[in-house]
């Protein structure tokens, strides 16, 4: 089996599990929506604060929801000896990494689309610079998925993984959060020129963690 079909196999498996269990749609998405709602309680919706800080709130919500999605991506391997089965299948570590990262990225993209729409409607955001927004979201999503998959496998199988994963992941993802928020702000303010350096930074982050993930996933996966 070549690497491409291995990747397709893993990503397809994870997405099929999601299609059947609907954890993302029935639990993670509503969680994100309620967070969006809660921000309006925390910040007075009448003073126009929400529209101004919408990019930051959006990415914080995505980050929190991503933590759940990443945790879920590895908890599905815990049951019925799925992990051992996958390990015995003789797949390449980097293929498993890419496959799982793609599955997470697809789920995150859906999450971002729905939450983005929610934020636009509820916070009264005027959308400008769609190209910049899409480029930012793509780079950030790949970065989130790559770093998330890497840390997900690191924490998988550990006793304190639910609490350990956020502590490990949030500082690492801090630059993604920062870059994506600034790029969204610049895009919405109609100065996309300022946003491109951030998109470049997000792309570097995504490439670096994809590369490291492909190298490190195999040995970590064997140990879990």
């Amino acid at each position: 089996m070549n690497a491409f079909s291995e990747i397709k196999l893993i990503a397809g498996k994870d997405l099929r599990i999601e299609m059947r269990s609907r954890i993302l749609l029935s639990q993670v998405l509503p969680f994100g929506a309620i967070v969006v709602l809660l921000f309006a309680f925390a910040l007075d919706p009448d003073r126009g604060i929400l529209a101004r800080v919408a990019p930051g709130l959006f990415w914080i919500t995505v980050l929190l929801a991503a933590l759940l999605a990443i945790g879920r991506a590895f908890s599905i391997e815990q049951q019925h000896g799925a992990r051992d089965g996958l390990r015995l299948a003789g797949l390449d570590g980097s293929s498993v990494f890419i496959g799982k990262a793609i599955a997470i990225a697809v789920q995150l993209a859906i999450l971002e689309a729905v939450l983005g729409l929610t934020v636009v409607v509820l916070y009264g955001v005027e959308v400008h610079g769609v190209v910049v927004l899409l480029a930012t979201a793509s780079a950030a999503t790949i970065g989130l998925a790559a770093a998330g998959t890497l840390y997900g496998v690191l924490a998988a199988g550990l006793r304190a993984r639910e609490t350990l994963l956020p502590l490990l992941l949030l500082p690492v993802l801090a630059p993604v959060m920062l870059g994506a928020t600034r790029a969204f702000e610049d895009g919405l303010e109609g100065v996309p020129g300022n946003a491109w350096p951030w998109v470049a930074l997000l792309t570097v982050f995504a490439l670096l963690y994809t590369g490291v993930g492909m190298l490190a996933f195999g040995p970590l996966w064997e140990d879990t």
Partner: peptide
């Protein structure tokens, strides 16, 4: 092994954090 790999992943993030925060405060 787990610790060593984590140390490398963490270290890679240090310059990215540094750059992003630097840009953020200067731009």
């Amino acid at each position: 092994r787990r610790s060593a790999i984590t140390a490398v992943i963490v270290f890679i993030d240090v310059p990215i954090v540094h750059f992003s925060v630097d840009w953020w405060r200067t731009l």
